[in-house]
Amino acid sequence: MKKKVKVVAAVIEQEGKVLCALRSSQMSIPNVWEFPGGKVEEGESLQTALEREIEEELACSIKAGSIFHDHTHEYEAAVVQLIALKAKLIEGAPAAQEHEELLWLPKESLASLVWAPADVPAVEALIEEKKVLNS
């Protein structure tokens, strides 16, 4: 039976752009884009886990908000429940600690990147959200 992993991801928007993070070649599922975040530890709320992970991965502080998207994806090695939360940057500027690169992109350009499979449904939901707001 595959290991089940609960992961939180930050959808950080600023000035009409969304923060995207490129997984490094040392990470599992390397060289694809994702929303930054990480595993939820035992006893942590989703928001606390996300705020901790962003502090560790990006050396900045966020305020995690409500759930934007929840999707479970089955990889070869594990089943990942990816819970994307909207988040606001509150202190510092994101700096790649573990990722290869960080990029701010407008929602309508998100589809131009190659995303980790678990992140794809949240990306599609963000692009759809943009279309709905503009119609």
Score class of each variant (00 low, 15 high):
1 M>I: 15
1 M>W: 13
6 K>S: 15
6 K>Q: 15
8 V>P: 00
8 V>Y: 00
9 A>E: 02
9 A>T: 08
12 I>D: 02
13 E>L: 04
14 Q>P: 00
17 K>N: 12
18 V>K: 00
19 L>W: 06
19 L>P: 09
22 L>S: 04
23 R>T: 15
24 S>C: 12
25 S>K: 09
25 S>W: 02
25 S>Y: 05
26 Q>S: 14
27 M>D: 15
29 I>A: 04
30 P>G: 13
32 V>E: 13
32 V>D: 08
33 W>A: 11
34 E>G: 02
35 F>L: 11
37 G>N: 06
37 G>V: 12
39 K>V: 15
40 V>R: 00
41 E>Y: 06
44 E>T: 11
44 E>R: 01
47 Q>A: 12
47 Q>W: 07
48 T>A: 13
49 A>Q: 03
49 A>F: 05
50 L>F: 03
51 E>Q: 06
52 R>M: 06
55 E>M: 07
56 E>W: 12
57 E>A: 11
58 L>I: 14
58 L>Q: 05
58 L>R: 01
60 C>P: 10
62 I>D: 02
64 A>V: 08
65 G>Y: 01
66 S>P: 03
66 S>A: 08
66 S>E: 10
67 I>M: 07
67 I>F: 07
67 I>C: 08
68 F>Q: 05
68 F>D: 09
69 H>Q: 13
70 D>C: 04
70 D>Y: 00
71 H>F: 12
73 H>D: 04
73 H>G: 03
74 E>S: 12
81 Q>T: 15
83 I>Q: 00
84 A>H: 01
86 K>L: 09
87 A>Y: 02
88 K>N: 11
90 I>E: 07
90 I>R: 00
90 I>Q: 03
91 E>C: 04
92 G>F: 10
92 G>A: 03
93 A>H: 10
93 A>N: 09
93 A>I: 14
96 A>V: 13
98 E>R: 14
99 H>K: 13
99 H>Y: 15
101 E>V: 09
106 P>W: 04
108 E>W: 09
110 L>I: 10
111 A>G: 10
111 A>F: 07
112 S>N: 07
113 L>M: 10
113 L>T: 12
114 V>Y: 00
114 V>N: 01
115 W>H: 03
116 A>G: 07
117 P>M: 05
118 A>Q: 06
118 A>M: 08
118 A>L: 08
119 D>W: 00
120 V>S: 02
120 V>K: 01
121 P>C: 03
121 P>Y: 08
121 P>N: 05
123 V>H: 00
124 E>R: 02
126 L>Y: 00
127 I>Y: 06
127 I>T: 11
128 E>K: 05
130 K>E: 13
130 K>D: 14
131 K>L: 13
135 S>W: 07
135 S>P: 01
135 S>G: 14
135 S>K: 10
